[in-house]
């Protein structure tokens, strides 16, 4: 089984870079899993429609991205594709192709993907101002985010 772990976000927009940082730290803390041949880890600033290819090329995909809901900054969300509409983006990526829309589009166009495991680990963002660096609550949530990634992978392996 080919599994892709994809950190998504913009590192120059504060907590928007949480997904990238979580995947980076997970690779550091779980090197045995991260180096397995069937596991591929990627950092993707703004995948846009290219995310469709990543979904189709792999048997399972774990996406790690910053999200915004009414939860406290640093809260880790486990989001199933069915719940994605809750997180439909306000066109935060090039030409309006956010993660939620792209997954929906992929599933709409390719019904076989309905059974394709897609897990989204969402990290509640605090501030998304210009500039690099995560806010304190999001920094503190990184170990939890890494464990969430590891748990999802272990379920799949």
């Amino acid at each position: 089984m080919k599994i892709a772990v994809i950190g998504i976000g913009q590192s120059l927009r504060g907590d928007d870079g949480a997904g990238l940082e979580a995947v980076r730290q997970w690779k550091e803390n779980f090197p045995e899993t991260a180096s397995r041949p069937e596991v591929r880890a990627e950092a993707s600033e703004l995948p846009g429609l290219a995310l469709m290819d990543l979904i189709q090329e792999n048997d399972a995909v774990i996406l790690v991205d910053a999200v915004r809901s009414s939860a406290k900054a640093g809260t880790i969300h486990h989001i199933e594709p069915g719940d994605l509409s809750t997180f439909t983006s306000d066109s935060q990526s090039a030409h309006g192709w956010g993660v939620a829309e792209t997954i929906q589009l992929a599933r709409q166009l390719n019904p076989a993907l309905k059974n394709h495991p897609i897990k989204l680990i969402g990290i509640e963002a605090g501030q998304m101002a210009m500039g690099s660096g995560l806010s304190k609550p999001v920094q503190n949530a990184m170990p939890l985010a890494c464990c969430a990634i590891q748990t999802e992978i272990e379920k799949l392996l």
Binding site: L49, M52, G96, E101, Q104, L105, Q108, L109
Partner: peptide
């Protein structure tokens, strides 16, 4: 409203577009 809605009614057009 979006290409998603278009994909729902005309999936082949959107597939070809992609």
């Amino acid at each position: 409203q979006s290409a998603l809605e278009l994909a729902a009614v005309a999936p082949d057009i959107v597939k070809n577009a992609l």
